[in-house]
């Protein structure tokens, strides 16, 4: 049931085991952080954080969308659940360390994914997609009506002046947390690709009926994918209140997050963990460049326009283009 592309990719990629791959990721991440510290420009951390956040969001989306073929449009719902769980925790226990908030946000978002998936994943894929689209609206309605976390007015979060553990500007700490999250998400995504779970996902994507008939527990696998995907999105959202320091529903549920998280894997390529990274770095970098040089209004169109262009003209994404040439 595994498509030819997957087999080729498994053969073409360097056969690195899970643990060595994780170590390589950690070394690369440490290198990036050391480089940033050496540059010591706050802007680099601010811009870098956004790209890292999109790597996490894009990879999280891809675990469900790219691997199983089920399209989740409710990215903002999961992302904002993470963000608002941090706002809530900040209000009741401001001294809680950020990594703990990330875990809480991820667990909550994962649970919402489980509930959603349980109700809608037994139907055709489009119904799941539509339900996630509606989920984004309903979570936004709930948050808007929940005064404790700021309601429609929004909430302010005061971040510490100095970063814990590492010292320096707090944004460096945020960058480091997001970098760590990136390592976790990418290692998970690659581990899934190479495990029985990944083959099960691919079987669902290629022909769900046949997979079901040959004994693949499709509902269970889809639920696992939804929980992982939603959970990582929640984790990506958890540090957001500290990054923006003022969070209101309109910005927390901005459609930009959803479009970018879907566009980046589709532009990079959905069949492997590398695609969302390539997409996030290229599109995120391009957007940042356009925001600085042209206008912030034009940059939001880039992801949408590129996504439409890529799904029409290059359905395998950038990674797919290179693979075909080889």
């Amino acid at each position: 049931m595994v498509s030819l592309a997957d087999k080729q990719q498994a053969g073409a990629a360097p056969a690195l085991g899970g643990i060595p791959f994780l170590l390589v990721l950690i070394v690369i991440a440490a290198g990036i952080f050391a480089f940033g510290r050496w540059l010591n420009i706050s802007y680099a951390f601010f811009a870098g954080y956004v790209v890292l956040q999109y790597i996490v969001l894009g990879t999280a989306w891809n675990i469900l969308g790219g691997y199983t073929g089920y399209v989740n449009f409710g990215i903002t719902a999961f992302f904002a659940i993470g963000a608002y769980s941090s706002v809530f925790l900040y209000k009741i226990a401001p001294s809680l360390p950020l990594p703990l908030m990330v875990v809480v946000g991820g667990v909550l978002a994962g649970l919402v994914g489980l509930g959603m998936g349980y109700l809608t994943l037994r139907l055709r894929g489009v119904f799941f997609s539509i339900a996630t689209l509606a989920l984004a609206v309903v979570v936004q309605t709930l948050i808007t009506n929940w005064d404790f976390v700021g309601g429609a007015r929004g909430a302010y979060v005061l971040r510490p002046r100095v970063a814990p553990l590492i010292g320096g500007d707090y944004v460096q700490y945020l960058f480091l947390v997001m970098l760590g999250l990136c390592v976790v998400v990418l290692a998970t995504a690659r581990a899934i690709e190479r495990s029985g779970l990944g083959y099960g996902f691919a079987a669902i994507r290629d022909d769900e009926g046949a997979a079901e008939a040959s004994g693949v527990p499709t509902l269970k696998l889809k639920l696992i994918a939804t929980v992982l995907s939603g959970g990582f999105m929640g984790m990506a959202g958890a540090p957001l209140p500290y990054y923006v320091t003022y969070l209101d529903p309109a910005s927390g549920f901005s459609l930009n997050y959803a479009v970018n998280a879907i566009a980046m894997p589709l532009i990079g390529g959905t069949s492997s963990w590398l695609g969302p990274v390539v997409g996030a770095v290229l599109v995120g970098g391009l957007q940042e460049y356009i925001r600085v040089t042209i206008s912030s209004a034009a940059n939001v169109l880039v992801a949408g326009g590129l996504m439409v262009a890529f799904v029409i003209a290059a359905p395998e994404g950038i990674v797919g283009l290179f693979r075909r040439k080889r």
Partner: peptide
Amino acid sequence: SLRGLSFFFGL
């Protein structure tokens, strides 16, 4: 399913 839906989302 995947790309067709994304196309309309992009639109």
